[in-house]
Design a protein around this nucleic acid. Sequence first.
RNA 1: GGGGUGGUAGUUCAGAUUGGUUAGAAUACCGGCCUGUCACGUCGGUGGUCGCGGGUUCGAGCCCCGUCCACCCCGCCA
Length: 591
Amino acid sequence: MRTFCSHITITQTDTTVTINGWVDRHRDHGGILFVDCRDHTGIVQLVFPPEQPDLLQQANELRSEFVIQASGVVKQRSPDTINPALQTGDIEIQVTDLTILNRSNPLPFSHHEPIREHTKLQYRYLHLRRSDMQQKLRFRAKLTSLIRLELSNQGFVDIETPVLTRSTPEGARDYLVPSRTQPGHFFALPQSPQIFKQLLMVSGFDRYYQIVKCFRDEDLRADRQPEFTQLDVEMSFVSEADIQDMTERLINRLFQELLDVTLPKQFPRLTYAEAMNQYGCDKPDLRNPLTLVDIGHLVKDESFEVFAKPAKLDGHRVVALKVPSGGSMSRKQIDDYTKLVGKYGAKGLAYIKVTNLDMGIDGLKSPIIKFFNPQTILNICQLVQAQDHDLVFFGAGSNSMVNQSMSALRDQLGLDLSLIDQQAWKILWVTDFPMFDKQTDGQLTPMHHPFTAPKQVDFDQDKQPENWLSRAYDLVLNGSEIAGGSIRIHDRSMQMNIFDTLGFEEEAAINEFQHLLDALSYGAPPHGGIAFGIDRLVMLMTQSDSIRDVIAFPKTQSAACLLTRAPATVPNEQLEELAIQSHSNTPENQE
RNA sequence: GGGGUGGUAGUUCAGAUUGGUUAGAAUACCGGCCUGUCACGUCGGUGGUCGCGGGUUCGAGCCCCGUCCACCCCGCCA
């Protein structure tokens, strides 16, 4: 009967146990030999005493990562040899039988040292042997089990949707799969099962869920992989509140049972407009106390055009960002922050250092004060409630530039000044997103996706679709978007109307989305849903720095797998069978 | 497509400010010694295409150009 290493306790003293595992470390004292045996539960110390020379000689062959089975008697350790750092530190196993199940070459890296990312990924199966990686993937499994338990208890039906499906024109770049049976035709891997789950609502599966891989061929980030896992949920006969309710119950249970963390029963809500106004960002990290404060109304009549001009222009804003105790910031630090906002197009970074408010304008230091009426500066200080030794940064320009640069600045300040409580969990809903984004060429694109229902729009009256709001909502945890969804359009003519607003030709829209449009005309119920980024959620819950750490076999930033060396070239016959010709003339392709 | 950081022993790193003898450390590995360690100790040893290619120079790990890989970011990601 197998026992797990760290499950052996002092109550088993003098009983015989058998363990399987890997040699973690071995300590050879000549006459006596200690071996730390490791399995996924932990470590237990094996002792090979000098009284059994044959066994000792056999044990002398043991090296790190050899796979062994050992039987022996559990012994209580004498008080002076107890190791309090080890869960099993009060006992050890006096070995009577040892089997070397497999030998191991020395590992390319030690389990007890940091490893470069490249090496980790190349020998991923060895890296996953580490206890921190074991814990993360086991945590992930617990999380998905709990999700299935909770959702099936709530009457949700788990339904699989196709992986080989149709490419749609909107959204991210598709991964394509050539069809052999229909040369020149291609499947796409799903960016999400969006349309399928809506079709399932039409079918009458009024509560659907699926834990499903999604694929997007876009550039990677620390929190973005080309294939990632969503918890996809859709419900019929619901409004926003029902989806949010279900989400709050689920997330609360996950945090309570997996982390023993109690989140608010209802999550705070911010509208998109409020979030952008206060944080410059639609996924603010609320652990960071800094906020943006509009000061346009105070500076619009000043002669300082850098502020006055955007203060008067539509689509522009002027904001202040107060940094408590920031007055001690060095010239170099401020230069670095200026570079940071420069990445987003800011021409500079104006600031005021507050040294002594009692002295009025003379108690302030700033390169820009001289351009202002002194009372305006004092009004700004009052508005942001600046105190002695504070620093106030300013951003002025187009909404998008100010929001992007100042929210990046806010994040960086949060890190640099340790304003963020790393133990805290701050979750919120962001609601009332605009329906559309207006691109530089004036073209509208859906902010969420083109099936999102608008919020109370009178199509005949309101001819400014860029101002329309949608029934979309995002769930934001510690500054990361961990879920997003919407109430969908269930009316065919409304859907056609939105396609039209997006500039789709009627014929093209009918062609691309025929299956959805048809379905909407056969008694589609009102419905809506949400999709959770499982990788991101697990990343946050396990305090990991990268999504790669919670994915067993992740890709590199250039979307390659260092373990399998995918993607790779294929023989020409394989291409011919698929009616594919490669334009790439790299030497590897010639082989 | 763009900006940044890194690549030196199996591994993790130093050496790069000032170009100069045989490129170091720790750890791992191999061998010896050691009966209570738990990052065991100790003595000795093996181990290098300094990512790759080119250039400057009497001489390049170090300077210059190009390139590849990994990571972080911008663009991109409905």
